[in-house]
């Protein structure tokens, strides 16, 4: 992906960053690192999750988030990240409360499962409520009329479901022909299809995630949604040079040469151990070749790309800051 152009001015102007990716690619981690990167230098960023699995709380190692905007981290240079877990039921009740005074009845119905039932009855309704809440956060202003958040990062559903999630127009046509939800959704549609919104795709350099990324791009295009950048996650360092990769990938590793090198470093290994090293090398090379194919396919998408390294020790808070730094170094702002 040498043709990648990094973070563009267009992306720097976006106020809503939607982050999606195939399950297991590290979508939530990337969303959190992006929020920290965007907050760097004194900005205020809101990180939102919508799948009711408390991924943000786990990542930041804290108790489950309530339905409110809590400060969860400070960013270098005085910035801050707040987090919100949007719960569709709470959003529905909050929403109804704007138009009807339900009072005690609202809580009773919630206990009976009626709210879940209604969102089940009209599956698109859940998405409409959640995107509606996100839109409200993006547009909220303080007393002086300035936006409360400089940017909002949304940890969105995975690639297989994201377009359906964002395609509010379709969902609303299906569920609400008239009424307040309809009116509110028109604002959501305007935001999602404007230059203020970018949909980022997280992938690994593996066949299936890249295939899903390419499929998602076609789907986004079909729904007239704007793709942002590709985040290539968990990139492993190159160890073999190109010629050695090609040879090793078909099983050709010069054992004598390896042995001579090891001896020069004072390592005299038993035969089976040397063979183990050779097997590991072949395994590595086959994987690198698969990564190269995946990378070539991604290049065809012609999207800005940023890369994040594999963190062998797992992701903790310190690692999130490290990832955010890598993003800033690649122009994320």
């Amino acid at each position: 992906m040498d043709s990648a152009v990094g973070w563009t001015d267009e992306l720097a102007r976006a106020r809503l960053h939607v982050v999606t990716g195939k399950g297991g690619t590290g979508k939530t981690t990337v969303a959190a690192a992006l929020a920290l990167a965007l907050a760097t230098g004194g900005r205020r960023v809101l990180l939102v999750e919508v799948e009711e699995r408390q991924g943000i709380a786990q990542l930041f190692d804290r108790a489950p988030l309530p339905y409110s905007e809590e400060r969860i981290a400070s960013a270098p240079g005085g910035g801050e990240v707040r987090a919100l877990a949007v719960d569709a039921e709470a959003a529905l009740l909050e929403y109804l409360a704007m138009f009807y005074n339900l009072g005690f009845a609202g809580r009773t119905l919630k206990r009976m499962g009626a709210v879940e039932f209604v969102t089940t009855l009209a599956p698109g309704l859940r998405d409409v409520l959640q995107t509606g809440k996100v839109k409200e956060c993006v547009g909220r202003t303080d007393s002086s009329g300035r936006h409360l958040y400089d940017a909002v990062v949304l940890d969105a559903p995975p690639t297989g479901r994201v377009v359906k999630f964002l395609d509010v127009t379709k969902a609303v046509t299906d569920v609400a022909k008239v009424g307040p939800i309809r009116g509110q959704s028109e604002g959501v549609v305007r935001l999602l299809h404007s230059g203020d919104t970018a949909v980022h795709l997280v992938t690994l350099l593996e066949e299936m995630p890249v295939r899903e990324t390419m499929d998602a791009l076609v789907e986004l295009d079909g729904a007239d949604l704007r793709p942002g950048a590709v985040f290539v996650n968990r990139v492993r360092p190159p160890r073999l040079d190109a010629a050695a990769v090609d040879a090793a990938a078909v099983g050709e590793v010069d054992e004598d040469q390896v042995r001579a090198g090891l001896l020069a470093a004072g390592l005299d290994l038993a035969v089976d151990e040397l063979e183990g090293l050779v097997d590991e090398t072949v395994d590595h090379a086959v994987r690198v070749r698969a990564e190269q194919r995946a990378s070539a396919e991604l290049t065809e998408s012609d999207l800005p790309a940023v890369r994040l390294p594999e963190l062998v020790d797992g992701v903790d808070l310190a690692a999130l800051y490290e990832l955010a730094e890598k993003l800033v170094a690649q122009g994320v702002r």
Partner: peptide, 12 residues
């Protein structure tokens, strides 16, 4: 010297 051995050791 020995770039192949270096690579093998690092990837191990």
């Amino acid at each position: 010297a020995h770039p192949l051995a270096v690579a093998v050791l690092r990837l191990h």
